[in-house]
Design a protein around this nucleic acid. Structure first.
Lengths: 345, 345
DNA sequence: GCCCAGTTTTACACCGGTGTAAACACCGGT
DNA sequence: ACCGGTGTTTACACCGGTGTAAAACTGGGC
């Protein structure tokens, strides 16, 4: 049975018949092929609008091997950082007449592997992938040829296009800011195990560099690991820090969610931010702007991340000869707010 | 030039040749058509895995008139409520082997109209749409036949499937909770103009009902409109309330973002929550759980919204004879936290 | 050994577009 | 009248699957 004909949807052939031209001519008009006579074009356009014709994208995709769809694969859409990133990616893509399909890995290694294996390959032109559990080795093994751009934090020695901020530099700036306020016992919340190679590793590195350069000791008790980057983990880590014989007077939290959790833990103890403890976060999520106190944070240029990522992907999709992998660093800025500067005026 | 062949991707025909059967038999195996002899099936499966064959979805879509894609159209992906909703929709869809394409209208009426006109129709099987600027009249005029389920708050007299919570009941419960704490000057933040018919209208209605039933006056000065549902607007509205000769002792905010803004404004004045003013929000966004104080809120069952919406859409997509429009109310719960109950323990 | 019903497999058209290469129209120049 | 060139249009194969209906095979009953 013929579903589409039953639904009465006009096809290219119907338009062609009505306009008295060949299918291909109609196709040429639609695709703005330059050598179409004006009177032909207008006859065709008229027929199109009379019939309310719209191209069948499945057919077009099949014919030209493109889908007009890119996938954004992230761990979880309701983590504020990813929400914002996704919002910008969808936005930017919309402007390039691409449409975005979103998948969540929920930090599941198996699922990330499926994505690498090309689970989506037949329905997308390209892939923006923010891996969280995937090893460099697993990336090396990738056989699927769908163009891919990596987002986010983990560095995989330049085998693929990769867009991120310079995490070491960002951590340096955050830590230096705390020192510039006169703080001397600066803690870090959000480290991962020593074998980690991702953002946490780099942020820790920046933090340690600045302390050392300032002649301050890097004290292991001030560096707290967190199982996940969620508020509860930040609060728990902060509790531990507050229980130390000599608690810190400042904390650099590797994400804003951790920082907000820490903020909460400090308040519960009846201490004040920034008077007793200053806090800097990372990511510049919206909550940090309306929290009390508002949160000083490293603000990655998420719009730029989205734009560059889509750009790179676009080039990779359309170039017959793919460019060599590119590593792009995006701007970031330290946004100083109340959690280090105190209440405004 | 033949892109796909160049890329060396095996086709159904290649599998068929290798297994020594016809294309259709391979197709039957893939689609688990029951009448395939066991030895044939295993020969085919072997060929499939030897070649690493994967079906070309564009071709399949073209042949069967389905895409396996649904669209979720919301105003903005980085509004926490929508982030969470999207997360669940993607999640649920993943379990039904559907994949989700997300578009943002950014509250643009024109763009919403384009969606209704079927901008996406040729690439999706169905549409989950959370309108924000679309009138009932515009919905009536819809001609595109893509199955659609409406999400969210605005009610359009039952022309389409619609999933939401009972906003009036939710607002009643929130307001009643504040009264049960002994508060008597309960304000409302987040009303819209009197011609509004959406959630704001219903929440206002529930609020007013409860006040009246308790024999309390509904005072216009305690009802604040907000241009947008963002923190800044909530803070501004709260400032106005605090400037009243007789400020409120409790506030029902129509969204959590408004509530968090209000919280901030109250803190800036040196007042305390809930001691001086108790606050209830709506949506149960994640930050309300880690704010200081944490936020009492109406918590819609977002998972259920996603599940039911996808269910309804699925039925509508697969039924030849579409069911009549269904209006479904999803459970909600009042989550009592510190902003009304005070610090725990 | 033949027929029939039930099971399994196949040939072939079709989904609705795009690419290729050839055909055609029109023009000025010889 | 014929030619070449530019501009415009067309026929037809093809993208890679699925649906239909008919063909081929199987085993049991007679």
């Amino acid at each position: 049975m013929d579903v589409n004909r039953a639904a009465g949807r006009p096809r290219l052939a119907d338009v062609a018949a009505r306009a008295g031209v060949s299918k291909k001519t109609v196709s040429n008009v639609i695709n703005e092929f330059p050598f179409v006579a004006d009177h032909t074009r207008s006859r065709v356009l008229e027929a199109i609008s009379e019939l309310g014709y719209r191209p069948n994208l499945s057919a077009r995709n099949l014919a030209q091997g493109r889908t007009g769809i890119i996938a954004l694969v992230i761990s979880q859409l309701d983590m504020p950082y990813f929400s914002e990133l996704a919002r910008h990616v969808v936005d930017v893509a919309q402007g390039r007449s691409w449409v975005v399909l979103i998948e969540q890995t929920m930090n599941d290694r198996t699922y990330e592997q499926r994505i690498l294996d090309g689970d989506l390959s037949r329905r997308i032109d390209g892939l923006l992938f923010s891996p969280s559990r995937t090893s460099a080795a697993a990336l090396h093994r990738r056989t699927d040829a769908t163009p891919m751009v990596l987002l986010g934090e983990v560095i995989y020695d330049g085998m693929f296009d990769h867009v991120s901020i310079d995490n070491v530099a960002a951590a340096r700036e955050a830590t230096a800011h705390l020192l510039s306020l006169g703080r001397r016992r600066v803690a870090a919340i959000g480290a991962k195990g020593s074998r980690a190679r991702g953002a946490s590793r780099q942020r820790l590195e920046g933090y340690q560099q600045v302390l050392s350069e300032a002649g301050l000791p890097v004290e292991p008790e001030l560096i707290r690991q967190t199982p996940r980057y969620v508020g509860e983990a930040g609060a728990a880590a902060m509790e531990e820090l507050l229980d130390l014989a000599r608690p810190p007077d400042a904390v650099f939290c590797f994400t804003d969610l951790l920082a907000l959790g820490a903020l909460r833990a400090i308040h519960r103890r009846g201490l004040r931010v920034p008077d007793d403890i200053a806090i800097v976060g990372h990511d510049d999520i919206p909550y940090g702007r309306i929290s009390t106190p508002s949160l000083t944070t490293i603000s990655p240029d998420k719009r730029a991340i989205a734009e560059i990522a889509v750009d790179l992907l676009e080039q990779r999709v359309s170039n017959r000869t793919p460019p060599p992998p590119r590593e792009v660093h995006v701007e970031f800025a330290l946004k100083v707010r109340e959690s280090t500067a105190g209440p405004a005026g």
